Each structure stands twice: as C-alpha cells, then as structure tokens.
Simulated assay, not measured.
Amino acid sequence: MHFGQPELKRTLLGFCIVLGISLTFSCKQDKAGSTVGFKFPEQGKEVTLGDDLKIELDVPADVKVNSASYLVDGKSVGTKNDASPFVLKTAALPLGYRLISAIVDNGTKKDTLTVNVVLKSAIKPALFGYKVINTFPHDTSSYTQGLEYHDGRFLESTGLNGSSTLRWVELKTGKALQKISLDKKYFGEGSSLVGDKVIMLTWQENTGFVYDAKSFKQIGSFPYQNSREGWGLSFDGQRLIKSDGTNRLWFLNKDNYKEEGFVEVFDDKGQVDQLNELEYIDGMVYANIYQTDKIAVINPKSGAVERYINLAGILPEKDRFPNTDVLNGIAWDAKGKRLFVTGKKFNKLFEISLVPKK
C-alpha cells in the first residue's frame, strides 16, 4: 500500500515493551538485592533457526536453585535440577520473536524470569532477475492493489479514496470488461477469487467485502480481527492468505473469513516487513515488498524467504510519468505457466520469466 509508517509504530511499540521489561527487572533486582536473572541469552538476541541456544541463569552466591523449568511461548521445553546451563534446540520452533521463560524454585518460593529472542531464517535466499517475454497495456488510472489471472482475463482491484474499483480486465487491451466502484470512504486493497465469490480488502477501514464473481454484486462483508490492516490477498485452494503491511502472513478461513493463524516472514538477515500484493504459486507465496522492486518468494509453512526476484528497471524511464507509482501486482496463469507483473498506475503489464543470478 500506502501512506502510513506501520513499521515505525511497530518498532517504537516493541522498544517500549522491551524497555518496560528491562526497567521492571532492574527495579526488582535493586529491591531484592540477590535475585536470579538470565546470564544468557541477552534481551533481543538474534538466533539462526536450527542453532542451539544456550540458556544460563545468573545466580548470586547466596541463592540456591533446586530446579529450573524452561518454557518457550508458554510451552515447556525442559527442566534442570540445578542452575546449570540448558541447551534449547531451535530447529522445530517458529520464526520470529519467541518468549523464553524460566521458573526458578529455591525450595521456598518460585520466581519467573522472561527474555525475548528473535529466530531468523537459516536459508540464504536464491537471487533471480527477469526476462520480459511479452508486454501488454495497463490502465494508468489503476492504482493496482490486487491482481490475479483467471480464464484469459485479470481480476484487478485498485485503491485510493474515491478511485477504488474492482474489475475484470482484458489481457490484450488492458481495458476493463466489467467494473464497480467502491464508496469513496473506502481505500481498496487486495482481492482474490474463491469459487464463485471475489473477496476484496480495504486498507484501514477494518472491512473486507464479498462479491458475486459474475455480477460483482456485494453479497457480504466481514471485519478484520488481529491483523492490523488490509494489504494483499491470495488463495491457496484451502485458505485465504492476507498481508497487513508487517512481516506477517495471516491465514483466513475461506468460508467465514476468520483469522486462523499467521506466520512471521524472515530471511537470513532478519524480519521482512511491508509485504504487499500476494500471489500463491506452486506452494509458495510471492509478495511485493512495498516501495521496492523486489518480490519475496516465501514458504508459507515456515515464513522463510527462499528466493528474491529483483525487477529493477522493468518499466523503462520513457514510460514513467508524474503519476507513475511503485511496483505492485503479481498474477500467475497456472495452466499456461505464465507470470505477470505490473505496478500502481503503470502503463504496461509484463509477462516475465525468471533468470537465476550467478
């Protein structure tokens, strides 16, 4: 999408939470004098998935430890009968922020300690460029938010207040074969075809719409739940997959649109934010990264980025106009094995093949 700065807000919130935890723990130490804490790991430590993580308590000389029980995100992972280090196996854990807890028993009372770590992907993403196979016209009034290919035509949803639309688009001409406009109070976002229905998101209005795929008559709506905003949407044949501008991919029930879980997206360097338009292709999620020329290819089971596609330069300078915006829009012709990409208010849509980078 968009105009906001969701990641800045998220970073500040995370900083405040960590700061609050740190201050609370420091005060506890000052008052208690002799308090057990964590020696390892330090707060916010980044750990590569699959690496062993050493957890060690910092125990004052005058404190006895009868047992220490360790948990990750509230689930028990092991117990020690003393304060000796505990080794956490991370291979089966989800990517992202994990809360490590230690329940320390000195025989008369139990104290609970917590620390956060970040699990990042162990996979170094393969890098791809592109080759343009065909070029097609694209409507420069279309602030593209969602793009799919079905039976020789595109399902495209567009954004901006007062200009948001849902349309079926002819491939060869780029012209709308059928179109409806959203009320000007809505900022349109991603869309996806599910059976005989089209599901379309809005940005910050906390609302998704359900349309009849043939008539575009609205037949329902639904509220968002824990996901922050509406950005991209795709369908894997079983569940809807939704992005909200963060590094999360949310999984929605295809019938009632309830959120049933999420994965956090990471590469080998850290979390990958501002995931935008989505396309499900052969078991992987292809995601535009907002305000970049990159597409991340994500394993939806783990959240790991396995490939990056760099589309820099795909729209020639001669085709860039004052209203031309950023790359956004991925569509897959499953039968013809064709990959299409475009951008917000681009005058062209491209069929491309992927070229591995050496």
Rank of each mutant, 00 (worst) to 15 (best):
E7F: 14
L8A: 10
K9Y: 12
R10E: 09
R10T: 12
T11V: 15
T11M: 14
L12D: 03
L13M: 13
L13Y: 12
G14C: 05
C16I: 15
C16K: 12
V18W: 07
L19S: 11
L19I: 05
G20E: 13
G20C: 07
G20R: 07
I21W: 09
I21V: 10
S22D: 10
S26K: 10
S26W: 15
K28P: 08
Q29E: 13
Q29S: 13
Q29N: 07
K31G: 06
K31F: 13
A32S: 14
G33S: 08
G33K: 12
T35P: 02
T35M: 11
V36I: 14
G37W: 11
G37M: 11
F38S: 00
F38H: 00
F38A: 01
K39S: 14
F40V: 06
F40S: 02
G44R: 15
G44C: 15
G44L: 15
G44M: 15
G44H: 15
V47H: 06
T48H: 05
T48N: 06
L49N: 09
K54V: 15
I55Y: 05
E56N: 13
L57H: 10
P60T: 07
P60S: 09
A61R: 06
D62I: 09
D62V: 12
V63N: 09
V63I: 15
V63R: 13
K64H: 09
N66Y: 12
N66H: 10
N66A: 04
N66E: 13
S67G: 04
A68V: 09
A68E: 00
A68Q: 03
S69D: 14
L71R: 12
G74E: 08
G74M: 06
G74I: 04
S76Y: 09
S76T: 04
V77C: 02
V77G: 05
G78T: 10
G78M: 07
G78S: 10
K80W: 07
N81Q: 08
N81L: 14
A83C: 08
S84N: 15
S84G: 06
S84D: 10
P85G: 04
P85A: 07
P85W: 04
F86E: 00
V87W: 02
L88E: 02
L88H: 00
K89F: 01
K89M: 05
T90K: 04
T90G: 05
A91G: 01
A91D: 06
A92C: 03
A92P: 01
A92H: 04
P94V: 05
P94Y: 11
P94N: 07
L95D: 03
L95H: 10
L99A: 06
L99P: 01
L99S: 06
I100S: 00
I100W: 00
S101M: 02
A102Y: 06
I103A: 00
I103H: 02
I103W: 03
V104R: 01
D105I: 08
D105A: 05
G107R: 01
G107I: 02
G107C: 00
T108L: 05
T108R: 08
T108A: 10
K110Y: 03
K110L: 00
K110S: 12
K110G: 02
D111N: 11
D111Q: 11
L113I: 01
T114E: 04
V115D: 04
V117N: 04
V117S: 08
V117A: 03
V118W: 04
L119V: 09
L119E: 01
L119P: 00
K120V: 08
S121C: 00
A122E: 03
I123W: 01
I123R: 05
K124N: 05
K124F: 08
P125A: 02
A126F: 04
A126K: 11
A126V: 05
